[in-house]
Design a protein around this nucleic acid. Structure first.
Length: 436
RNA sequence: GGAGGGGUGGCCGAGCGGCUGAUGGCGGCGGUCUUGAAAACCGCUAGGGCGCAAGCCCUCGUGGGUUCGAAUCCCACCCCCUCCGCCA
């Protein structure tokens, strides 16, 4: 799956790319220079090799020409000359392959180029774009409580037994808690399907090749769980769903292609020791409804806005307070050119937390996955891909508990969920099943 | 797991050592005809790399090998299909 990346654009006009990458991290300036040098060396080796190959091909053809004329002596002479070339050929071939590999390795380490509209700065510099303050559903409690506390009191979440069975960062949902998780996922799927997304239920295990395609490898290897047969548990359904059209040339009439997928997601959280150790926020396994769009390049920024609205619309329907922030360049994910995070309010456990992250990946993944389309003029170009949570189910559940927590110790549910909950409108302490 | 069969261009499908980067069909684009459309007929139509260009190079699942020369022969791996076994 070694494929063209956008080296040509880098080569032709490196300056804007260099300065955009530096907005992520100043260290990329040197890496870009290393890439340009490696690329120049590679191209001169390639040109030399191709000249030699052209010569060899001509000589080879002259063998059959000479034989057809019955001139065996000339044929033998040509064969001898080709044989003489073989050593030099082999030398140039291995040189060229080495240099191509070097270019590839450097290219794989370079992240996507931030869009000009992306705010500058790092983690703390996200810009709030808009906010939605939902009126409380019931009678809010005076003292907020973290969702793990509420969940345990109401018998919805069991972290202790989950740890016994599976270790830390796992949870068992039970009773109405399990029902609520399932209700949320079903509601979100129906919600997005009604807005024109096609529902996908993807495989949870993918081949290593697929992860190279989506650019999760080589950089995020330590975040992934690997199986004994060298498959990987997906960390997001973005992976199987985006790769779904890999190696295809689509008709322009098929675009945009919009998918909504539910899946469990698995993350080893290798670099997050000690962070968010309590509650549902950071688990090794969680449920997520994901949106993926493949579209024409010229429409992708409109699609980014629309998908962010789609993610938000879930929270509006659930009557959850939230805000949208534009991530700063230094905080962008590796593949993203621009990202909006949707942050839901968790009044009991410390403010706004990411519940959705919507990214325009532009052609970054489409190039390595080989997802292209034929336009009206018959020209082949890469699609742009976008992905965004629509939304993280466990975090939505946490927000429902914390925002719906009432003075009398119950949790009021938003109306859209009632049908999915079999008519249950409120989860009260009486519903508590098993105590410790 | 065992035994077979197969992976070729947007799709289907030939080719099985050299003028084959690939016959043919479908689809697409352009044209003739038509008031318009359909039908019929004619022409064009794989992807990628290097180069200002002319042009050259690479690619017939992937990687090796044989050969002056490989879609075609050999080896390994991946994937798909059929039958048998096992199984939710």
């Amino acid at each position: 799956m070694a494929r063209l990346l956008d080296i040509r654009r880098v080569r032709q006009d490196p300056e804007p790319i260099r300065s955009a990458l530096v907005r992520r991290d100043a260290a990329y300036a040197d890496r870009l220079d290393a890439l340009l040098r490696a690329d120049a060396e590679h191209r001169s080796a390639l040109a030399a090799l191709e000249r030699l190959r052209a010569e060899r091909n001509t000589l080879s053809q002259s063998v059959s020409l000479a034989r057809r004329e019955g001139d065996e002596a000339r044929a033998q002479a040509a064969i001898a000359r080709v044989k003489d070339m073989s050593q030099e050929m082999a030398r140039l071939e291995s040189l060229q392959a080495e240099q191509a590999e070097r270019v590839r390795a450097l290219l794989l380490e370079l992240p996507n180029v931030p869009h000009p509209s992306v705010p500058s700065g790092g983690e703390g510099d996200a810009v709030e774009v808009r906010r939605h303050d939902a009126p409380p559903i019931g009678v809010p409690a005076k003292v907020p409580l973290p969702h793990w506390e509420i969940g345990q009191r109401l018998g919805l979440l069991d972290f202790e037994r989950a740890a016994k069975v599976s270790g830390s960062r796992f949870v068992v949902y039970r009773g109405l808690g399990a029902r609520l998780e399932r209700a949320l996922a079903n509601f979100m799927l129906d919600h997005h399907a009604a807005r024109g997304y096609t529902e996908i239920l993807p495989p949870y295990l993918v081949r290593e090749e697929t992860l190279w395609g989506t650019r999760h490898l080589p950089k995020f290897r330590e975040d992934m769980f690997v199986t004994t047969d060298n498959r990987y548990l997906i960390s997001t359904s973005e992976i199987p769903v985006t790769a779904y059209h890999g190696d295809e040339i689509l008709s322009h009439e098929a675009l945009p292609i919009r998918y909504v997928a539910y899946s469990a997601c698995f993350r080893s959280e290798a670099g997050a020791a000690g962070r968010d150790t309590r509650g549902l926020i950071r688990q090794h396994q969680f449920d997520k409804v994901e949106l993926v769009t493949l579209c024409r390049p010229e429409t992708s920024y409109d699609v980014l806005e629309a998908m962010t609205r789609d993610a938000q619309s879930v929270l509006e329907a659930l009557q959850l307070s939230h805000r949208v922030v534009a991530l700063a360049a230094g905080d962008l994910g590796f593949s993203s050119a621009k990202t909006y995070d949707v942050e839901v309010l968790l009044p009991g456990s410390g403010g706004y937390r990411e519940i959705s992250s919507v990214s325009n990946v532009e052609a970054f993944q489409a190039r390595s996955l080989g997802i292209r389309f034929r336009d009206e003029e018959g020209r082949v170009q890469h699609v742009h891909t976008l992905n965004g949570s629509g939304v993280a189910v466990g975090r939505a559940l946490a927000a429902l508990l914390e925002q719906g927590w009432q003075e009398d110790g119950s949790v009021r549910l938003p109306e859209v969920l009632w049908p999915y909950m079999g008519g249950v409108r409120e989860i009260a302490p009486a519903d508590r099943a098993v105590r410790s």
